[in-house]
Structures are given as structure tokens and as C-alpha cells.
Computed example of a mutant assay.
Amino acid sequence: MKNNLVLQTDFGLGDGAVSAMYGVAISVDPTLRIFDLTHDIPQYNIWEGSYRLFQTVSYWPENTVFVSVVDPGVGSDRRSIVAKTKENQYIITPDNGTLTHIDDEVGLEEVRVIDETINRLPRSGESYTFHGRDVYVYTAARLASRLISFEEVGPEIPVHSVVKLIKPKAQIQDHLITGHIDILDIRFGNLWTNIDRTLFKQLQVQHGDALEVTIHNDTRQVYKNIMTYGRSFADSRLGEPLIYVNSLDKMGIAINQGSFAKAYHIQTGANWQITFRKFN
């Protein structure tokens, strides 16, 4: 049985780039099952590409092959790699930090550098700006269709040598949890933090409890308010903010039927800090 092939890029669908990647994969094996994770990663945003993989990968069967192309360094000396996760999926990507969340949250079992002398689209050797088509999806299709084994991708490299982005850890001290806003639930404008539910529970809170929530962008306070910890959006009135557990078992912030991110001009990343304080 063939394995699934899942594609993620920052290319968008406004031109033929993604279609070309599909064409290469189908040319390798017309029976491949190809799916899109997303092609709407903001341009050059490696952090978001890393997070969307973490959001998705664990829900796919073993041996699924992912291609993630968010590659501002295309044509440079950055490595092109294939990583095998501890859950037995494969991710093909530039070695530029895209594997940060997967390494931390899922774990990497083994990593190999793509040998482009054998794993590159024929007659593409003079092209240096579309590795997603010429190297990544071509290698991925061959791996997913079992025309090559993982060992035939190229030489193994140490897992610890893979490039990682700065990823702060959430902390708890004196009834105060400090974390960061990792990503947005884009369509609805909810804030997804890096604070695990299990860490949050150390505040000894129950559904219905009120907490003080503060958001800083670097040293500038952007938001401060009291809000309720709810089981779901039904636990708040229309337009009210609430704290909830998101689909990745981490803490989220939302406005019931509104966009928290738009309302308060919130963005994401290591410089966006959020704190939860329980009242004694």
C-alpha cells in the first residue's frame, strides 16, 4: 500500500507553483494520494510553518510523508533534509528551523540530508530557486511510493545538528504562569499559547474561575483584563472574552464570536508574552 503525501508551503494558490509540485509527484507515481496541509503560511514565516506541522502531523497515519517548503534561504548552502519522527512519519524540508516544534513536541528519530545527485527531478540541475518542485516533492513522491527507502535519501546526520528556532518555555511561579502566544487560530482570531493544560492546572483552577490575563509585546503592555476559564465558548456571553483549552491541549484566549487578535492588534512569536494570575 502506498503512503500519503501531504504538502505545506507559503506559495499560495495564485499561480502554478503548487500545481507544478502536484504534477511532479503524480509523474513519479500516478496512484499517490496527495493532500494539502496549507499553502497559506505567511511568506517566509518559518515559525508558523513549524507550528502548523506540529498542529497536524500526529493525526496522520504512520509513514505519511510531509513536504514543508517555507524557504527564504533557497539557493543558499542551507541543507535539504528528511526527518523521521518518533511517531514514524517523514518530513522533507529545508533545514532552517521548520522542525522546531516537531522536535520539541513529537521528537525526531533520525535525519538524513537529501543526496541531490540521485534525488532530484531529472533535467532540473540548473534551477536553484524552486527546490520544492525539483528536490523536495520529487524525493517525497519517491519515498511515499516506496521507489526509494529512507536510507536511500542520503547520508545520516545527527539529530542535534538540525537548526532550531528560539522557542521559550512556559513557567509557573507564585500563582503566576508566564508563556507566549505561539500562533493564531487564524479564521476566528483566537490566541493559542505555549502553555500546556497540565501546567495551567497547577494554578488549581476550575471551570468558572476568574483569572487576570496580561499580554505584553516586549515591554509594552497591550492588554490586561479579568476573564473566566470556560469549558467551551458556550460558557461565555456573546462578545465576552474567555480562557479555554484548545485542540492541541494548550491554553487559548478568545472572544465569543469575535476576533481577539483583531480587537487588540495581537500578533505571535517570542516577543508576545502572556500571563495568567489566579486570585488568592
Rank of each mutant, 00 (worst) to 15 (best):
243 I>L: 05
58 S>L: 07
62 E>D: 14
65 V>R: 05
191 L>P: 02
188 F>M: 02
91 I>R: 00
178 T>S: 15
80 S>W: 02
221 Q>C: 10
17 A>N: 14
74 V>F: 07
79 R>Y: 07
63 N>R: 15
129 T>Y: 14
257 Q>L: 11
229 Y>L: 11
138 Y>I: 01
139 T>G: 00
26 I>K: 14
119 N>Q: 10
94 P>H: 09
79 R>T: 03
210 A>T: 14
147 L>I: 07
78 R>Y: 10
64 T>Q: 09
243 I>Y: 06
262 K>D: 13
198 T>M: 08
48 E>W: 07
156 E>C: 12
18 V>Q: 04
110 E>Y: 08
138 Y>Q: 05
160 H>T: 11
193 T>R: 00
60 W>M: 12
180 H>D: 02
113 V>N: 07
132 G>M: 01
237 R>W: 09
67 V>S: 00
73 G>S: 12
90 Y>R: 00
54 F>Y: 15
123 R>C: 12
68 S>V: 06
83 A>Y: 03
141 A>S: 09
146 R>A: 06
190 N>C: 05
90 Y>H: 01
260 F>T: 01
143 L>V: 00
78 R>S: 10
79 R>I: 01
184 L>A: 02
7 L>G: 01
255 I>E: 00
146 R>D: 08
105 E>F: 10
275 T>M: 08
97 G>H: 06
117 T>F: 12
223 Y>S: 02
97 G>A: 05
167 K>P: 09
23 G>T: 05
40 D>V: 04
163 V>Q: 13
97 G>K: 08
190 N>S: 09
116 E>L: 07
161 S>M: 10
277 R>W: 05
137 V>M: 01
180 H>R: 13
17 A>Y: 15
205 V>C: 12
41 I>S: 00
75 G>T: 08
266 I>R: 02
72 P>N: 10
54 F>L: 14
207 H>N: 13
2 K>R: 15
276 F>G: 05
187 R>M: 10
94 P>T: 03
218 D>S: 14
212 E>P: 10
223 Y>N: 05
208 G>W: 13
166 I>L: 13
80 S>R: 04
98 T>Y: 04
71 D>C: 05
239 G>I: 04
104 D>V: 03
248 L>P: 00
102 I>M: 08
206 Q>R: 15
176 L>I: 12
267 Q>S: 14
165 L>Y: 03
34 I>H: 08
43 Q>C: 11
48 E>G: 02
